[in-house]
Design a protein around this nucleic acid. Structure first.
Lengths: 237, 237
DNA sequence: ACCTGAACACCGTTCAAGT
DNA sequence: ACCTGAACACCGTTCAAGT
């Protein structure tokens, strides 16, 4: 092994030694790259994904990835889409409970993203892949079938999108820095004259994330259901 | 269009020369650092903020910042909070239109973040600063005064939070890569057998962002208002 | 067709040193 | 008290070169 004599300890050469020659890696492929990228993201977070580190984990030379992939952005795109995998609604027949269908799909979507906490923050800044498009299509069809007026349809879909995205990003991030939250609440205790209401309701200590997600979703769906009966213009202030 | 595409020429030495000796910079201070960081973020986006670049723009040596600031994270925290500045509700007296108050505050919040498109994505992953806490406190008080039951209060607040965060992050990011959206819609055109509903409703071409934001917010507030009259448990499926 | 190391132009941060 | 350059351990990506 070419000991590179780097300035500090020979951590690098040690790493090289660990790669046993008997365990011969399968050849690189897009699938392996993407799967390993997801592993790395799950383990180290969004800043932990490094082209060099990824190649290392694949047992490949640092620059080999660039034959399979244009750049790092592409790796993010592929990893994200692979994690949002969605195989349509379970039953093809007509469901009579549109609301349950919507809740089911959105909770599943949220769960997928929480399994890979880096994914939610990534989603809004990438182009929409086929998997999220499928979810949007299902949402659209379900709401339309439930009686949401055409003029309201896009706003309805985006409002659900916004809600899910916002909830999941918030949860995924607070999850990682949990003490931030309790620290914030404790700071609040000292400032109860400034923030008496959220201090009293213990807003920042509420960690029934699933329940709160569902409850807020119900508010939103209540509002959507309200509109289904009547003309879209006829809402009274 | 500033020439972003500098091949390998003497950009660095040129930059140094530009710093005229006659213009003598005021001394470094937290305020100047934060203000310049916001400028830089506005101009170059979240990846454009670099400790070295920031110091350069301040006319200071690269490492001078570290005397005023612990690390880059701190710069982000301070820049974010400075952008969310909030001076409470306009009038101290009781308002009789809680709904207008909520809409007003949330639209202002969103507008602040859209003026600094990097801020929305940053917000959920940082500790909550005093400015957002003020907004949450106001929200809490207003909803409570409007008759939202204590048991529903936190879910109500978080649902509005989620909605605003999700909407603003989505908008800020689609804004920056506008062609992604039309590209996606054009891809859709070729795949109309897969996504007929969102193809028909032109979901991805709807760029009345403000109107859609308001409409979805109204759905959510409709749902919240629904719950105010009666017991929280008495919602029929 | 597939993989590689060297090299370039960057990063954030530490540290000893300057005024 | 405030600022600095050199240095370290990293980055993403290009390129010429290897098989």
């Amino acid at each position: 092994m070419a000991a590179k004599r780097s300035g500090a300890q020979s951590k690098r050469s040690q790493r090289k030694n660990v790669k046993l020659p008997s365990v011969q890696e399968p050849p690189l492929s897009l699938e392996r790259i993407v799967a390993t990228a997801v592993e790395l993201l799950d383990a180290q977070g969004i800043d932990g994904l490094t082209m060099r580190r990824l190649a290392d984990r694949l047992g490949a030379g640092a620059m080999s990835l660039y034959w399979h992939v244009d750049n790092k952005e592409t790796v993010f795109d592929l990893a994200l889409d692979s994690v949002l995998e969605y195989r349509g609604p379970q039953q093809t027949g007509e469901s009579q409970d549109w609301r349950a269908d919507v809740v089911h799909m959105l909770e599943g979507w949220r769960a997928s993203m929480l399994r890979h906490p880096w994914s939610a923050s990534l989603l809004p800044r990438r182009a929409l892949g086929p998997n999220i498009l499928s979810r949007l299509e299902l949402l659209s069809r379900t709401l339309s079938g439930a009686g949401v007026a055409d003029a309201d349809l896009n706003a309805a879909i985006w409002s659900l999108w916004n809600y899910v995205i916002g909830a999941t990003i918030t949860r995924a991030n607070f999850d990682r820095s949990d003490d931030d939250m309790t620290a914030a609440q404790q700071r609040l205790a000292g400032l109860s004259e400034h923030y008496p209401t959220i201090e009293r309701s213990r807003l920042l200590l509420d960690n029934d994330w699933d329940g709160t997600f569902r409850k807020g979703l119900d508010f939103l769906l209540d509002g959507l259901a309200l509109g289904t009966g009547r003309d879209a213009a006829g809402r009274n202030p």
